[in-house]
Amino acid sequence: MALIPYTLFFIGTFFCLTAVTVVLDFIQHRLAKHHYIQLIKENRKYLYVYLFKVLAEVALIWLIVAFIGQIWMGWIKF
């Protein structure tokens, strides 16, 4: 019998990669902040793309938090 159920292992790996991607994206933005500000001035559409991408990333992080919270509450069982 496996120590960690396969489904939990799969989802956990997916969540870890998602979290890493989001963190790297935030770091990338911080490093190139001036470049992005210039880009927004040149093309207003980039503002909306950036804004809604960040909101979606934050939503992803909260979904991961909720997943862990629901395991803790006993709503999700493996």
Binding site: F67, G69, W72, M73
Partner: peptide, 11 residues
């Protein structure tokens, strides 16, 4: 944005 959270992100 809110719909997936409203469906699944309740703790």
């Amino acid at each position: 944005l809110c719909l997936p959270l409203a469906l699944f992100a309740i703790i």
